[in-house]
């Protein structure tokens, strides 16, 4: 315990790379400018943080979805549980992620685990609320029809209610994913790297800020589009209705 505390004390934010401004047009770089030459020469240094960023986001959203989905299914049967679950996840949602990273440090130490726990906690409310809303909005007639066909409660859930709730569920996933991409830029405070570490490493240098920040925005847009495409693929009937 003492050793880990000392290690944490002597290595504050040590994973952040030091400024390295070799390559590109020296005048532009010294000027903190936006230098295409420097970006072209140094783009490869953003690849590892980007990969780490994607890992943090995908792991957090996947775990967050699994937990929210299980909670939503339980709450679907026992409706009294919805209010307390929303309250607890609401508090987790309110806590600033940067604060949670440090609140978790004494428990989970520095690294990806701390970041993922905090990001999962943040995604729960968004996903849970959308799954619950989706299940609530299933037309009563559809349920009645399913029951009339002799479906059991479980069959009704998996064959009627969940498919009809898919658009809302996927909407929740999209919000959770874009939000998590943004919050994961702060994960370097927990020692988990990601694009935020690059931004922080040289915050006055326009080229660096634009590339690292731009990659984060781009990542959010790409993941958002990917989930939207997946949603179109697994809910063909929504397109038929719209057409």
């Amino acid at each position: 315990m003492v050793a880990s505390a000392v290690a944490a004390l002597t290595a504050p934010l040590a994973q952040v790379q030091l400024r390295d401004r070799s390559g590109g047009d020296a005048g532009c770089v010294a000027d903190d400018g936006l230098c295409p030459g420097w970006i072209a020469d140094n783009f490869d240094r953003y690849v590892d943080p980007l990969v780490q960023h994607v890992y943090l986001v995908l792991a957090s959203v996947a775990i967050g979805f699994a937990i929210s989905f299980a909670l939503a299914l339980v709450a679907h049967r026992h409706r009294w549980m919805i209010a307390p679950i929303v309250q607890v996840t609401g508090i987790l949602y309110t806590l600033p992620s940067i604060a949670v990273f440090f609140l978790l440090l004494p428990l989970t130490g520095r690294g990806s685990l701390t970041a993922i726990v905090a990001l999962v906690a943040y995604s729960l409310l968004i996903i849970f609320r959308n799954i619950t809303t989706g299940l609530d909005n299933v037309p009563e007639e559809a349920r009645d029809a399913g029951r009339g066909m002799g479906l059991t409660d479980r069959q009704l859930l998996w064959r009627v209610e969940l498919p009809l709730a898919l658009p809302e569920i996927m909407a929740g996933l999209r919000i959770a994913t874009t939000t998590t991409v943004g919050l994961a830029t702060l994960a370097f405070f927990a020692g988990a790297g990601g694009l935020g570490g690059q931004i922080f490493a040289d915050i006055n240098f326009k080229s660096n800020v634009v590339v690292a920040g731009g990659l984060a925005v781009l990542l959010a847009a790409v993941l958002d589009a990917a989930i939207l495409l997946a949603q179109r693929a697994i809910t063909p009937w929504t397109r038929a209705r719209a057409a």
Partner: peptide, 19 residues
């Protein structure tokens, strides 16, 4: 609000500092 959600707050602050 969708665009706003996709722009990380750290990136926003960094843009302001750099520019």
């Amino acid at each position: 609000s969708n665009v706003g959600r996709a722009v990380p707050s750290l990136a926003l602050i960094a843009f302001f500092v750099a520019y």
